[in-house]
Structures are given as C-alpha cells and as structure tokens.
Design a protein around this nucleic acid. Structure first.
Lengths: 187, 187
DNA sequence: GATTTCAGCAAACAGTTGTTTACTCAATGG
DNA sequence: CCATTGAGTAAACAACTGTTTGCTGAAATC
C-alpha cells in the first residue's frame, strides 16, 4: 500500500499497474495476489486507510468549543497540519473522488457521507441551529465537508507561501458561511 | 477528441492509451501523430473545448439581473441544463481537475482562474459589494466557482430524481452564501 | 515434533503498448 | 497541370501488461 501511495504521486489510480506496484514494493508480481484480489481492492483499502486518520481529525476539530472566530482559526489550522502530515493520502482522496475507478469512487463517497453525518450531528448540537430543519443542517454540513476537502486538496500542492494564502482565504470563506448561518431564518 | 471523450466515461485520462483512442476513432495508430504530439496535448485540447462552452454559460448566468432569489434559481437551472447537454465535458473537468496528468491539471487551473476573475468582476459591479476589498471579492468568487464545479460534478452522475435533490441543495447553499454576503461588514 | 498455513518466488502465457519508418492517395493552390 | 501538403495506412520494434502454475521456506498451531 505504501508503494502504491508513492506511485500515485504522479499518476491517477486508474493508470496504476500491479506489476508497477509490486516492483516498487520490491516483490514479485505474483506476490500481489496474496494480499489483494484486484487493484480496485487495493484502492478501497487505501481509501479506508486515508480516511481513518482524517476521521480522527474531524472529531478533534469539532470537539473544541469557543466563539466562532476561534473555532474557525483552529479548524483551518488542524486541516493544514493534517495535510502536512498526510500529503499522499490527501492527494489520493482529492484525485480519486471523481476518478475513473468506480469502487474507489464509491468508497470515498460513502466515507464522505459518513463525515457529513457526523458534522451534521455536531452542528445540530450548536445553539445557532436550534430551530433548523434536518435537511438544512445537512446542507450546511455538506458545504463544510466539501469546503474542507477542497481546501485540503489545494493545500496539498502548495508551498509554504501558498499555504498561508490558501489558509487565509479558507478562513474568510468559513467566516462568511458562519455569518450566513446566523442570519438564516432572520430575514 | 470525440473518441477520447467517449472512452473517458469509464477511466481517467492518465490511463488512456493512444492505441485505444485511435481504435475507438477508427484509424490507425500512426494517424494520431498527425493531430497531436502527445496524449497530454490531446488532453489540453479537450480542456479548452470543454471550458469554452462553460464560459458562455457563466456569462449568460451573470448577465441576468433581478432579486437574489430569482438569480439563484436561474443560475442553478443554467448549470443543470449545461450538464445535461455536455455531460462528458463536465465529467472530464471534474475528474481531471486533480488528476494525474500535470499539463491537463494546469490547463484546468488556469481556465478556472479566468472564470474566477470574470465572476469577481461581475460581483464587483453589484451594489452588495460596494465597499468590499478586492481580496474579499475574489474570495467569494472562488467560493462560487468551486461550488459551481462541485454541483456540476454531482449532477453529472445523477438520475432525474437525484438531479432535483442536488439542485435543491445547491439553491439553499447559494442562498446561505448570499445571506453571508449581505451581512459581511455589518456586524 | 509434526502439520498446516502464510508469504513469498521464478517462469511462462498471449496480448497490448508507444513510436518509427516508408508508403499511398486525395485535395489544394499557384 | 504540376507540385505540395494533409491525412491517412501497414508493418515492425522491443518493452511491458495481468494472471496462472507449481514450488519453497519459514512461522504458527496443535
């Protein structure tokens, strides 16, 4: 799996070959079948590995509490740290979310849907969304998750300066969304 | 190019072979080189083709004017129509935006940046953003463009019912962003 | 201590890949 | 009407592909 992740730095999953993978891993082609039936199988395993760490991150970011401003700063910081430490995983998820291999795409979709549920639950617990309908809460959760993935994807290919710029923009965008939430039913 | 687009329904660009393309196009392998130096070359050409039509669409969506509610409904409608008529192009852009082929990825990035500029210019002309800084306007423009691409990507793989659901969510998300914009400096 | 499972190997299979070369033949242009 | 260009071809090249088979040795289990 590490070998595959390494190779995926410069290509998409649908162009990955098993010979290529085994070569990178330093084993014989036949050895692959001891671990996976398929390349798609490997892909799904990678999705789970990649989103496990991210899962812990999201929990952490939403457990915190304080005023919205602080929360946003903290959330963006957590994302940036995560990307720095799991660059290959983040790139993989961003790249294959709409990629050419159905099972991988579906695994990512399913996992992100679970994320959205979790975020929705966290949002529902906030006083701001006291009288919100479940559909509206889920819609905001989706906005947040998409924004997080997109921000992570952008960070993953940025240098130190680009990182600051992207983080700053992300914070402002989150602030704007937060503003929208506070005025949702009020107009 | 049509042959390639056809094949890209089920795979990513980085796994496309030129023999595969020429076979689908009904010509001999060598014929490919009469039109493109590289496969990457084909990819960049596809990006331009795909984003030309989208460009016209964005202009149209922002030319309109009326109250925010109507504007949002209209914009989402325009996107849905576009996706229905250019499904393959939309899928290609969504899939390769973070795909494994550098030149293609960069062509898409450049083209989307031009979009963002155009949207930013349109936003700047609206009374709502009268006292906004250019950076803040661009940040909102980016939010809109990303949202548009994501919505189009979701629509592209949905059936008739999913289409309605996705469009409804997109409308609500845009409304929330619009709310945020109206209260940006006000608190 | 015997046996079963596990993770690996080399070799072989027929197909497929990108690219080059030398060639045709129709259309175009002066 | 003759020359040039454009778009196509077939054939050949070595290199690489996914998968199967039968084999080995070590580790774990009983």
């Amino acid at each position: 799996m590490d070998a595959a992740l390494q190779l995926l730095e410069h290509q998409s999953f649908s162009s990955l070959g098993m010979r290529e993978v085994t070569r990178e891993a330093g084993m014989s082609p036949a050895g692959f079948y001891r671990h996976f039936r398929d390349l798609a199988d490997l892909g799904v395993a990678l999705v789970e590995e990649a989103l496990d760490s991210l899962h812990a991150m999201v929990r952490a970011a939403f457990a915190e509490q304080g005023d919205p401003e602080e929360l946003i700063d903290h959330a963006v910081q957590v994302i940036a740290d995560h990307v720095r430490e799991h660059r290959a995983h983040v790139r993989f998820i961003a790249r294959e979310r709409f990629g050419g291999v159905r099972p991988v795409r579906e695994a990512i979709d399913a996992e992100l849907a679970r994320f959205t549920d979790e975020v929705a639950a966290a949002l529902a617990a906030q006083p701001v969304s006291a009288k919100w309908s479940p559909e509206d809460i889920r819609m905001v959760a989706q906005l947040y998750v998409d924004h997080m993935v997109l921000t992570a994807a952008a960070l993953q290919e940025a240098d130190a300066e680009g990182e600051r710029r992207i983080a700053a923009t992300a914070r402002r965008q989150l602030r704007l969304i937060s503003l929208g939430r506070h005025h949702w039913m009020a107009d």
